[in-house]
Design a protein around this nucleic acid. Structure first.
Lengths: 239, 239
DNA sequence: TAAGATGATTAGGCTATACTAATTCGATAA
DNA sequence: TTATCGAATTAGTATAGCCTAATCATCTTA
């Protein structure tokens, strides 16, 4: 069919929505998301990402600098935040109204976020009392697409005893990223600082909820940017 | 990739689930579902149906008699009933817990039925008190895939004043089917018998909720099989 | 019983998405 | 400053959907 006659603004596919979400998470503070990181997060091969990147920049959802990476445009960011709002409201609704625990809720929300209508999302938000934070304490974007940016501390500077959520990893270095992923240190993971050796020594953290310890050297700890999580685990109530 | 190495039992796609559902509805009492009827129900071209029919019979979900139509196998029927259970529980949940009315709920459930997990469906069923009927009075299949078959009366024999749901149209004749569809007389529609002329004359019905009257000649009325709907509209409460 | 009508199927294409293998770019290190 | 290596891209292929146009089968009717 003639390309000019096709719908100029077709609804986004499920795949596209997933790409936008991970690009948002990877390029959070103004950086570029690398092809291989996107591929790893979505569990697809890098050439698949190159292909999708091409389509997404043609439709104006991302900006692509070849061999450097991608960033969301304003339009892409809006779409990504819409998905994040859906995801967080779904997680909250499933836990508070349907008895889910924090184990199973992420996978379920991951599926549903592509299928719910805007109306349903707003009805769930209503039923929840229009919450501002999800149970991890992460801010829920507004329906208009605004989000409160959290203040981040590097793990190397975080005080002992604090409960933290790993939000960003400040490197593109693949070896480091793979090492961290192997340790379970990926954005979104919850942890507490259990001790830090003096004289710029390593920091020991415990993963939440497993309690598994991880020892992180200072150099790496400086790259791990975290957000303080309110101790009750429910940001909405705490603020 | 080598076909032998692929997952022997991959999850069904959204499209496949939709095909199975309409084949179930079209071949309800042991008949065959015709290609053109499937195409009309799914709003796709007939060759698309031929293509899908080929794939579905290769995977053992349907039985295909060329130029005659298709029927579900036991496996296909199980999958179809699973979708119908999801759909009906979703409709009930959305109306009872999220304030939906009967207008918007069908489209929303149509999307969600492909995305919810079995666990979520069962949690919603629990929250609803394990209902046996949806708000139309249609029976909800069990998680094990059993469904209560409703007793049907032909519209030509239904007593005046009864509230009915049109369940099956007992013909494959295209002209008749198109005429009925044009009159809004498609399976699922609710109606009440307002009067019947004596000596095998036509039956007049009123559509619910619009109240629009339709006059149906005896020959056609005999083809319209209906289920009696409890007057309160909530089968679950009535039984 | 043969011709037409109608519905089903095949032929041939298109798009979105994925893959592997081959190639190219760019940064690091000698 | 160049050789090298890893990351990114291109080339080429596959699959699940969909489509239109062309053909084929079946049923009805003259």
């Amino acid at each position: 069919m003639n390309a000019l006659l096709r719908d100029a603004n077709p609804p986004l596919t499920r795949s596209v929505e997933d790409y936008l979400k991970v690009i948002y998470h990877l390029s959070n503070q103004g950086g570029f998301a690398a092809t291989s990181d996107i591929a790893a997060m979505l569990d697809v091969a890098p050439p698949s990402v190159s292909g999708m990147v091409k389509r997404l920049s043609e439709t104006g959802l991302i900006e692509h600098v070849p061999y450097r990476g991608v960033q969301l445009t304003a339009q892409g960011r809006r779409a990504a935040l819409r998905m994040i709002r859906r995801h967080r409201i779904l997680e909250l609704y499933l836990t508070q109204h349907l008895g889910y625990d924090w184990g199973g809720v992420h996978a379920e929300a991951e599926q549903l976020e592509h299928a719910v209508s805007d109306e349903l999302v707003e009805r769930m938000a209503s039923a929840l009392g229009h919450p501002l934070y999800d149970p991890h304490g992460d801010p829920i974007p507004t329906a208009a697409g605004e989000i409160e940016e959290a203040e981040l501390v590097s793990l190397a500077d975080a005080p002992v005893g604090l409960k933290l959520e790993l939000r960003q990893v400040g490197t593109q270095d693949s070896a480091r990223l793979h090492y961290l992923a192997g340790q379970g240190l990926t954005p979104g993971v919850l942890l507490t600082v259990s001790e830090r050796q003096p004289f710029n020594g390593p920091t020991t953290v415990a993963l939440v909820p497993s309690g598994d310890p991880r020892v992180v050297g200072r150099e790496l700890a400086q790259l791990l940017w975290c957000r303080e999580v309110p101790v009750d685990g429910y940001g909405a109530a705490a603020r």
